[in-house]
C-alpha cells in the first residue's frame, strides 16, 4: 500500500493536489469557530453556490481566467450577507438560504441555456462535488492557491484578537472603540477567498463541511478560543490529508471522502468530550 502511495507521489499532479488540499483545509478551519458562533454556519454553502453561479457566467462569457470574475462576485456577496446584520429586510439564515438556492438555480439555468459542452450533467456534477478538478491543477493555480492561503493565514493571525472581540460581543467591541464593522468586513472577505479556493477541493456542495466540521469537533473537547482554533486547524489538515490519501488509494471521490473523514472525526471528538465531561462532573 505504501509502495502504491509512493508511486502516486511521483506524479506532480498528486503532489500539487496534496499541497493545495492541505492549505485549503488549514484556511477553511480558521474562521469556522467564528462562523459557527455567529450563527453563520451555512454561509459557506450560500457563498459557494454564488461562486458556482459566477463560474457559469464566466463560462458562458468565455472568460478564460474564471477567478477574475468569481472572486469579486463572491467577495461582494459575502460582504452583503455578513454586513447586512440586523437591519436588513431578509436576514440571517433566510438571506443565506435565498442567495444560496437562487445562485444555484441561476447557475444551472445559464449552463443549460448556453451549454458549450456535450457533457452538461458531468460538468455540473464536477462543479458541485469537486470530483477530479483538484487533480488537474496547473502550476499557476497551485501558486495562486499558495499565495491566497498565505494571505488568509496572515490576515487571520494579524486580526486574531479583533476577530475574537467581534465574535464574542460585537456590541461591546463597537461601543468601546473597536471598528466592528471593518472587522466584519474583513471576516467576510477572508471567508469568500477561502470558499473560492475550496471549490477546487470539495466542490461547492460540500464546502460548509470543510468550514464547520473541524470547528464543531474542536469545540466538543476544548474550552478556550485559542485551543479550539489550533485544534480545529490541526484536525482539518489531518482529515484532509487522510481523506485525500484514501481517495487516491481507493479511487473514491476526493471531496466526499474528506468530508466523510471530517464527520468521523466529529463523532470521535463528541465521544471524547462526553467522556471528559463525565469525569469532570463526577
Amino acid at each position: 500500500m505504501i509502495q502504491t502511495l509512493l508511486q502516486y507521489l511521483q506524479y506532480p499532479f498528486v503532489r500539487y493536489a496534496l499541497i493545495v488540499g492541505v492549505l485549503i483545509a488549514l484556511c477553511s478551519s480558521l474562521l469556522g469557530v467564528t462562523l459557527v458562533l455567529k450563527r453563520f454556519s451555512f454561509i459557506g454553502d450560500g457563498l459557494s453556490h454564488v461562486a458556482f453561479g459566477a463560474m457559469t457566467i464566466a463560462t458562458v462569457l468565455g472568460i478564460s481566467n474564471e477567478m477574475l470574475l468569481v472572486l469579486p462576485i463572491t467577495v461582494l456577496s459575502a460582504v452583503l450577507l455578513l454586513s447586512a446584520g440586523q437591519r436588513a429586510a431578509v436576514k440571517g439564515d433566510a438571506a443565506i438560504a435565498m442567495v444560496s438556492v437562487g445562485a444555484l438555480a441561476f447557475g444551472y439555468l445559464l449552463m443549460n441555456i448556453f451549454s458549450t459542452s456535450s457533457n452538461l450533467s458531468g460538468d455540473v456534477c464536477s462543479t458541485l462535488f469537486g470530483s477530479t478538478s483538484i487533480l488537474t491543477l496547473t502550476v499557476r493555480e497551485v501558486v495562486l492557491s499558495i499565495v491566497l492561503s498565505v494571505l488568509v493565514v496572515a490576515a487571520f493571525l494579524l486580526f486574531y484578537h479583533k476577530i475574537f472581540a467581534v465574535t464574542f460581543d460585537e456590541t461591546f467591541a463597537q461601543a468601546t472603540g473597536t471598528n466592528a464593522r471593518l472587522y466584519n468586513l474583513i471576516i467576510a472577505v477572508i471567508i469568500a477567498v477561502i470558499i473560492v479556493l475550496a471549490m477546487n477541493l470539495v466542490g461547492s456542495l460540500l464546502i460548509s463541511a470543510l468550514v464547520i466540521f473541524p470547528a464543531l469537533s474542536a469545540m466538543r473537547v476544548h474550552k478556550t478560543f485559542l485551543s479550539v482554533t489550533i485544534c480545529s486547524a490541526v484536525l482539518s489538515v489531518a482529515c484532509a490529508l487522510a481523506g485525500m490519501l484514501i481517495s487516491i488509494l481507493g479511487g473514491t471521490p476526493v471531496g466526499s471522502t474528506i468530508v466523510a473523514v471530517d464527520a468521523l472525526a466529529f463523532g470521535i471528538f463528541t465521544l471524547i468530550g462526553r467522556i471528559k465531561g463525565g469525569i469532570s462532573h463526577a
Binding site: 469557530v33 458562533l37 455567529k38 464574542f168 469545540m219 476544548h222 478556550t224
Partner: peptide, 8 residues
C-alpha cells in the same frame, strides 16, 4: 451566542 462560547 455567549452562553456557549468556548473562551477562557
Amino acid at each position: 451566542v455567549q452562553r456557549d462560547f468556548p473562551a477562557s
